[in-house]
Amino acid sequence: MNLLAIGWEPELRGLLTVVIAVVILMGSIYLIMLTNMGSRLAFLVVLAGLAGWMMLMGLTWWIYGIGLRGPDPTWQPVAGATVLQETDALRSAGALEVLPEVPADATAREEGELVGEQFREEGWVLLDPSSPAFGQAQATASVFLEEEGAFAAGAYVITDVFDIGGDRYPRVKAGKIPGLTNDSLDFFAFFHEPHYVVAEAAPYVQVRDEPGRAPVSPEIDETRQRQYVYMIRDLGARRQPAVVLTLGGGAIFFALCFLLHRRERHLQENLSNSKAVAAA
């Protein structure tokens, strides 16, 4: 009955798989070396080999960003200023330093164009709608808009996405290294400036669905206010588990190598002393 219970419990089955794998793979190697080295020395050698393998595997994962991975970079809401339903809120939230001058008779589309020009004047970059960065920001902004109840699903469209920041430093200029043709080297640019995006959402005109007729293509409602989603980039920690594995495995590996070296040195000293005593 216990075996049947294990077959239906994924937690126990996974635990047994790991235990069996450890016993068969590492245990078999330990058993072979135990017959030649003894239990203690074989244990140190096998454990040092395992730690060295973990260090090399972690280093490979660290370099290529694969294997054991942490959270990927994502867009996160700016605290207290995520969904901005008024143009004036762009300045109070810190997205814009100066608000554009909007005429009293301007339509929602004209006001949006003035806001877009102000973004570009202050150094924001308008992303290409076909770029992956636009698509990622659009998907995340849609989640925030629907969670906040600003729009229902399918009742709006993300028209523009403005991007600023995200530069890495310190960088080495190409002119300082002879023969270097690239603009800069960023192998050691571990620090980043804050990276922000603002996504502009325009509501659709409400359309009635009539049975038996093809749905009408949605159109932007030019009489309703544009809304904006203010987000900051979270760089994540994709390589953090690999870094911990590499450093931890390396520390254990070199510590065991030191113990093996010290044991070998003491063994040689004892053998030389025994030979000297036997010769006397």
Rank of each mutant, 00 (worst) to 15 (best):
M1F: 10
N2R: 14
L4E: 15
A5D: 14
I6V: 15
G7F: 13
E9I: 07
E11S: 12
L12D: 06
L16D: 05
V19S: 14
A21W: 09
S28M: 09
S28H: 07
Y30K: 07
L31K: 08
N36T: 12
F43M: 12
L47P: 00
M54E: 04
M55S: 09
L56E: 00
L56P: 00
T60N: 12
I63A: 10
G65E: 11
I66V: 15
I66Q: 14
G67W: 09
L68P: 06
G70T: 03
G70P: 03
Q76H: 12
Q76F: 08
P77Y: 11
P77G: 10
V78S: 10
G80C: 05
A81D: 08
T82G: 05
L84T: 01
Q85I: 05
A89F: 03
L90T: 00
L90K: 01
A93Q: 02
G94S: 05
G94Y: 06
A95M: 03
L96E: 03
E97F: 09
E101P: 00
E101H: 07
V102H: 03
A106C: 11
T107R: 05
E113M: 10
V115I: 08
V115T: 01
G116I: 00
Q118W: 00
F119N: 00
F119A: 00
R120T: 13
L126S: 03
D128K: 02
S131Y: 02
A133K: 06
A133M: 06
F134A: 03
A137W: 00
Q138F: 01
L145T: 00
E147L: 11
E148C: 01
E148Y: 06
A150I: 00
A152N: 12
A153E: 14
A153C: 04
G154D: 11
V157S: 11
I158K: 06
T159I: 02
G165D: 01
G166E: 05
G166C: 05
D167G: 07
R168C: 02
K173L: 14
K173H: 12
P178M: 06
D183H: 07
D183P: 03
S184L: 11
L185I: 15
L185D: 05
L185Q: 10
E193T: 12
V197Y: 00
V197E: 02
E200Q: 15
P203L: 08
V205G: 07
Q206D: 12
P211E: 09
G212Q: 08
R213E: 15
P215V: 11
S217D: 14
R224T: 14
Y230E: 04
I232D: 04
D234F: 10
R239Q: 14
R239P: 07
P241H: 07
V243Y: 09
L247P: 09
L247D: 06
G250M: 10
A255G: 14
L256I: 03
C257D: 05
L259P: 01
L259F: 14
H261I: 12
L267R: 15
Q268S: 13
E269Y: 05
N270I: 04
K275N: 10
A280N: 09
